[in-house]
Design a protein around this nucleic acid. Structure first.
Lengths: 188, 188
DNA sequence: ACTTTCGATGACAGTGACTGACATCGATCT
DNA sequence: AGATCGATGTCAGTCACTGTCATCGAAAGT
């Protein structure tokens, strides 16, 4: 065993999720994660910036999908429509990940530091979307507000989707939330 | 000097803001903050849960104002109107704090950990507002979405207000952003 | 096959945030 | 004066995270 077993990064992610689930985030030390993965603490920090980041490995990919889909919307599309298209694309990615998402979200919700990290990932997403809208000619504050509204829809929809055991996909909750947001902001 | 000088908490807050401004958040140790305040590191942690929290002392007060104002809106008011009333009330609190807000925000924006903390404070606000709306009979997901939309408006407006040197108050930017949100979510 | 190269890992020492336990000060009450 | 009690100081300890250097092992070149 030892060095050169493949997939060190993935082993660390799995070990971390397991341990965070079993005993909680605070009660888990990085040394324990590394040990379960057959590595050392120092190697953990070569793969992940900190103890939280190991749970957020896919976020760059998600952001790239978000942005590229929004950017690919036809020029005629309203800002909110470009965001809606991006939300739909993202929803399909979570198609077969309900069980994993639920497990991961349970860990995150149970710890304030992890919630903070999740929030800044979503804020980064919002900033990237606002950038995309600005490049499409949308002025401020409309660009930032549309992006924030889109992320709000994602947050609420994701939360509801993770909590459900029915077969309804994330896309359903996203459409529901987006429609509801429109009703709610119309002012009466 | 030494023990029993009054206002230990306030001295710590001021020392922290000064040092974070001068050399940055990461380059400041808690021991240095405590020393400038004439106290010890251990005492710092008796007043504030961690190194970040010292910048967010007023957040409970702000949340209380937010919630009580929203709750006090007439029953006939639409959810978004109750939130708008709360936003207006909060804006008036920042009336004479532009210089201080700007200084504080400069520090926060410069550091990811501080941004995370700010985001979870805003998320806590959003959750409290959603609770208030639910108590007013607003169902989900409308309650959460309205609250999130309100916080989005606050975020964008606050950012613009802090960046301006004109005399326009936070209330101006809040009304501007709220109006723009309504336009942007209407779908075209 | 032998050597060289080079990225990934290990080993180790160090800093600083944060905590628990206990001692001490000083204002207030009796 | 003595008792009380909250706020502070002291000290030891854990753990996240970093810098540095040694070492391993695969792959490429000879």
């Amino acid at each position: 065993m030892g060095r050169w077993e493949p997939n060190a990064r993935e082993r660390l992610q799995q070990a971390a999720l397991e341990l965070y689930s079993e005993r909680g985030f605070e009660q888990t030390t990085v040394a324990e994660i590394a040990k379960r993965a057959g590595l050392t603490e120092r190697t953990f920090f070569r793969h992940f910036a900190d103890k939280r980041e190991v749970l957020f490995a896919g976020s760059e990919t998600l952001q790239a999908l978000f942005v590229s889909t929004a950017a690919a919307a036809p020029e005629s599309a309203a800002p909110i429509e470009a965001i809606a298209a991006a939300l739909d694309a993202v929803a399909s990615v979570f198609q077969d990940r309900h069980a994993h998402s639920r497990r991961r979200q349970t860990v995150i919700v149970a710890n304030a530091e992890l919630r903070e990290r999740e929030l800044i990932k979503l804020a980064s997403l919002s900033a990237a979307l606002a950038d995309t809208l600005r490049q499409r000619g949308v002025p401020e504050p409309a660009a930032s507000l549309t992006a924030e509204a889109g992320i709000a829809v994602f947050k609420v929809a994701f939360e509801r989707w993770v909590g459900e055991t029915d077969g309804r996909g994330l896309g359903f909750f996203i459409r529901e939330s987006l429609d509801e947001l429109k009703v709610v902001t119309s002012g009466n």
